[in-house]
Amino acid sequence: MKPYQKIPIKECGEPLVAIPQEKFVVELPHPYEKLGAEYDGKSPYCLRKGVLEALETAQFLLDKRHPGWKLKIHDAYRPVGVQQFMVNYTFESLIRKYGWQENQISPQQRQELWSQVYELWAAPSADPNTPPPHSTGAAIDLNIIDDQQRVLDMGGAIDEISPRSHPEYYARSKTLQDQQYNRHRQLLNQVMSDSGFCRHPKEWWHFSLGDQMWAWLQNQQNPQKPKEHLQARYGRV
């Protein structure tokens, strides 16, 4: 169990609503659908109503700073079944990356692979008390495109298993290119955090609002106020 999963959930009952695709940039078909993930008729481009309203605020703030720029959504609502698919897909991808055969790897190698997988992906838990963040409709993975339809280079890909995925990876670098990567990451974080989101501590692209991780991060910022500790308001959909 990860620390944020200990946060209690007091479900507010807000519905999942479709993300208006004319206001943002999305990829069709969805990146995980291209890999073979099944959404069982549900759209991956959905969020809880309150989360979508906050995302629209983030888009407004981005456009105010950089007219014509848009948030590019990689992933939003993710059923637990898709979470399981991506966990398995990532495990198999790592085996191919190392040139191994699954039936020949040692127990230690298998454990090392799973450790890498779960460094990136939340466990596809069916327990309503420990839902994967995306299955709540309160988490989103995204980037930015500029007014020339170019994706901002963040110095690392979404879903990349690498130290480069950590938000502050380039913060202390002195090279001009790395400083640019860091500015791009700071811009994304700024418009999202100003709209109420919290960024995942280890993923520059992942933001949430109202789920267990969001509440846990908020509480970490106010450790001296236990009576004001937040609960999650969004559980698994």
Rank of each mutant, 00 (worst) to 15 (best):
H166R: 15
G137L: 03
D147P: 08
Q186W: 05
E119M: 15
I144V: 07
Y169E: 03
R150T: 11
Y169D: 10
D127W: 11
A138T: 06
Y118E: 05
S162L: 08
I144C: 00
R164M: 13
P167A: 02
Q179G: 10
Q179N: 14
Y169Q: 03
D159T: 01
R183P: 05
H134W: 02
Y118T: 05
T136N: 05
S135L: 06
L176T: 14
R172H: 12
H166M: 13
D159H: 01
A122P: 06
P131Y: 10
A157V: 10
Y170E: 02
Q148I: 05
G156M: 09
S135D: 04
N182H: 15
D146S: 06
H184L: 02
L142T: 00
D153F: 01
P133C: 14
S125V: 11
T175W: 06
R164P: 08
A157D: 15
S173V: 04
S162W: 09
V117P: 01
D159M: 03
I140V: 06
A171T: 08
P133R: 12
Q148R: 14
Q180M: 14
N129Y: 13
H184V: 10
D141N: 10
S162M: 04
L188M: 04
Q180H: 13
A123P: 09
R183C: 11
A122K: 09
I158R: 03
P167M: 10
H134C: 08
R164G: 07
H166T: 12
T136V: 03
P132W: 09
V117I: 05
R150A: 04
I145D: 02
A138M: 02
P133M: 13
D141I: 04
P163M: 07
G137W: 07
N182L: 11
A157S: 14
M154T: 02
P124E: 05
Q179K: 13
M154R: 04
L142P: 03
V117W: 00
L188E: 01
H134D: 01
E168S: 13
D147A: 07
A157W: 12
Q177N: 10
A139G: 00
H134V: 00
G156S: 13
S165P: 10
Y169F: 14
P133S: 15
H166E: 12
L142H: 00
L113I: 07
N129H: 13
P124L: 07
H184Y: 09
Q149R: 12
Y170I: 00
S115L: 15
D178I: 00
L152I: 06
L120D: 08
Q116E: 15
I161Q: 07
Y169R: 05
G137E: 00
K174V: 05
S162Q: 05
Y181V: 03
N129D: 14
V117M: 02
W114V: 00
Y169M: 08
S135Q: 06
L187Y: 04
N129P: 10
P133H: 13
